[in-house]
Amino acid sequence: MPDRQRADARRNYARILAVAEEEVAAHGTDASLEQIARTAGVGSATVRRHFPTRWALLEAVSHERVEALCARARELAGRDDSRSALLEWLDDVVAYSVTARGLAATLAYDGAGVGSVHENSCTAALEEAAGPLLRRAARDGAVTPQVTVAELIALIVGIALATEHHPDPAAHADRLFRLAVAGLSPQG
């Protein structure tokens, strides 16, 4: 959001975003844009002016969480045990994806190519932040070198979406992730 916006436009943006975070947490990615507008006390056109697409709104809602995951990846990059550092970060991504309804959908591959207008900025940020973790783990022989961050995120998205309606989605997602992790180790 440009700093040159009028004060009321900045307030509307902040109010819409706060309401959207609550609505997405409660209703997932299908949260009603009209309900968000009503609760924020603005018109639907105001919501669309700030967030021209549902995707833009979901990315904005996820931005803070994604930034926290990126910071966590940078923090873990200095750990001695590269596999442990990578798995700890991936655990964090699983936990965020399961507890923050809508985050998994914003990380899902949408078919847009690199450099596309529709490129997924959330996934791109996570890939950039986690790249050093994965490269180091691969260099240390702790993870197969062919694995990419994009593939790991796709795996987590699948797990989060598959467990979304489970009675205990966090525990079930963790179990499925643990099963998948066994396949990350190089054959030796």
Score class of each variant (00 low, 15 high):
3 D>Y: 09
4 R>N: 15
8 D>R: 09
11 R>W: 08
14 A>G: 03
15 R>W: 00
15 R>N: 04
17 L>A: 06
18 A>D: 10
23 E>H: 14
25 A>I: 01
25 A>Y: 00
35 Q>C: 02
40 A>H: 01
42 V>P: 02
42 V>T: 02
43 G>S: 13
43 G>F: 05
44 S>N: 12
48 R>K: 15
51 F>M: 04
59 E>S: 11
68 A>T: 08
68 A>Y: 02
70 C>F: 00
73 A>G: 04
74 R>I: 00
78 G>Y: 07
80 D>H: 13
82 S>C: 12
84 S>K: 06
86 L>N: 02
90 L>C: 06
93 V>S: 00
94 V>F: 07
96 Y>E: 14
96 Y>F: 14
97 S>F: 01
101 R>P: 03
103 L>Q: 01
103 L>C: 00
107 L>Y: 03
108 A>C: 07
108 A>F: 07
111 G>A: 14
111 G>S: 14
112 A>F: 04
112 A>P: 00
112 A>N: 04
113 G>P: 01
120 N>C: 07
122 C>P: 03
122 C>I: 01
123 T>I: 04
125 A>I: 01
128 E>C: 07
133 L>D: 03
135 R>W: 13
141 G>M: 14
143 V>S: 02
144 T>D: 10
147 V>G: 06
149 V>T: 05
156 I>R: 04
160 A>H: 00
163 T>P: 00
166 H>E: 13
166 H>L: 08
168 D>G: 07
168 D>C: 05
168 D>A: 13
169 P>F: 06
169 P>A: 06
171 A>N: 06
173 A>V: 08
173 A>D: 05
181 V>G: 06
181 V>Y: 02
183 G>K: 09
185 S>Y: 15
186 P>H: 03
